[in-house]
Lab assay of single mutants.
Amino acid sequence: MQIFVKTLTGKTITLEVEPSDTIENVKAKIQDKEGIPPDQQRLIFNGKQLEDGRTLSDYNIQKDSTLHLVLR
């Protein structure tokens, strides 16, 4: 499925993911596309910070959902 990740600069990254993917996996995909190390990434969905060990389906993230990427 496709999800979107919006950065603070207003750029939107499109990712191909599975609901069973962990947040860690998603961060690795963002690193592949953008070169941002996962330990600098914080992903936010519906105002909640997403934890590495959880999956997209844990957070009820579905296709065409938009996550927000904050760098630390």
Rank of each mutant, 00 (worst) to 15 (best):
M1H: 10
I3D: 00
I3L: 15
F4N: 07
V5A: 03
V5E: 00
K6D: 12
K6Y: 12
K6V: 15
T7Q: 15
T9Q: 04
G10Q: 08
G10F: 01
K11D: 15
T12M: 15
T12F: 08
T14Q: 08
L15K: 00
L15T: 03
V17Y: 06
E18L: 08
E18D: 07
P19H: 03
S20L: 07
S20R: 09
D21A: 10
D21L: 14
T22H: 06
T22E: 04
T22G: 13
T22L: 04
T22V: 09
T22R: 03
I23L: 14
E24H: 02
E24Q: 07
E24I: 08
E24T: 04
N25I: 13
V26H: 00
V26L: 09
K27H: 04
K27P: 00
K27E: 12
K27L: 14
K27I: 15
K29A: 09
K29N: 12
I30W: 01
I30S: 04
Q31S: 02
Q31F: 11
D32A: 12
K33P: 07
K33N: 10
K33F: 12
K33R: 01
K33S: 15
E34W: 02
E34M: 03
E34Q: 05
G35E: 02
G35Q: 11
P37T: 13
P37H: 08
P38T: 14
D39P: 07
D39G: 06
D39E: 05
Q40P: 06
Q41W: 08
Q41R: 08
R42D: 14
L43P: 01
L43I: 06
I44P: 00
I44N: 15
I44T: 15
I44Q: 09
F45A: 03
F45M: 15
F45H: 14
N46S: 10
G47K: 01
K48D: 14
Q49H: 13
Q49R: 04
Q49F: 03
Q49G: 10
Q49L: 03
L50M: 09
L50G: 01
L50P: 02
E51N: 03
D52Q: 05
D52S: 11
D52V: 10
D52N: 10
D52F: 09
G53Q: 06
G53R: 06
G53K: 03
G53T: 09
R54A: 13
R54W: 04
T55M: 07
T55Y: 12
L56S: 01
L56P: 03
L56M: 05
S57R: 04
S57D: 14
S57P: 13
D58Q: 09
D58N: 09
D58P: 01
Y59R: 01
N60G: 11
N60R: 02
I61E: 00
Q62A: 11
Q62W: 08
Q62F: 13
Q62K: 07
K63V: 09
D64I: 02
D64H: 07
D64P: 02
T66D: 13
T66M: 13
T66H: 14
L67D: 01
L67E: 01
H68F: 03
H68R: 08
L69H: 09
L69I: 13
L69K: 00
L69M: 15
V70H: 13
V70L: 09
L71R: 06
R72D: 14
